[in-house]
Amino acid sequence: MNASIIVLVAYITWILVLLLGLASYRSYMSLTGKFRGLKFKADGSDVPAFGNRLTRAQANCVESFSFIGGVLLVAIATDSTAITNGLAYILMGARLGQSIVHLISTSTLAIQIRFAFFLIQFGIVAFWLVKLFAKFL
Rank of each mutant, 00 (worst) to 15 (best):
R95W: 07
K41H: 11
I12N: 07
A126Q: 05
Q121R: 05
R53Q: 03
A134V: 04
N60K: 02
A3D: 15
I76R: 11
S107A: 07
V47K: 00
G69W: 08
F118A: 06
S45I: 00
F67H: 14
V47Y: 03
I83F: 11
W128D: 04
S4K: 08
L19Q: 11
R114I: 02
Y11Q: 08
G70M: 06
S4D: 10
I90V: 15
G93F: 11
A77T: 09
F40K: 03
G86A: 15
Q121N: 08
M92I: 10
R53P: 02
A88C: 12
K39D: 13
A116C: 13
L20D: 02
I120Q: 05
G33N: 09
I113R: 00
R56T: 02
Q121Y: 08
V125M: 09
S45L: 04
S80T: 13
T84I: 09
K39C: 11
F127D: 09
T78L: 15
A57W: 03
L22S: 07
V71W: 00
I76G: 13
I12G: 12
S105Y: 00
G44S: 03
V47T: 11
A23W: 01
L91P: 01
T108N: 12
Q58G: 04
R56L: 10
L18T: 05
H102I: 01
V74S: 08
V125R: 01
R53S: 01
L72F: 12
M29Q: 14
G97S: 05
G123F: 00
N60C: 10
L31E: 13
S45N: 07
T84A: 15
F35Q: 09
A110M: 08
I76F: 12
R114L: 05
L16M: 13
V71A: 14
L87M: 13
Y28F: 12
G21K: 05
L87T: 12
G97M: 05
I90L: 15
G123D: 03
L18W: 00
I6K: 12
Q121C: 13
I124R: 01
S105K: 02
S4A: 15
A116D: 03
D79M: 09
S107N: 04
I6C: 08
N60D: 12
Y28D: 04
L72I: 08
F136R: 07
A77Y: 07
A75V: 07
L103A: 03
R56D: 00
F117R: 01
L20P: 00
L73W: 03
T32H: 07
G69C: 13
S30G: 06
I83K: 01
I111E: 02
S66C: 08
N60E: 09
L103E: 04
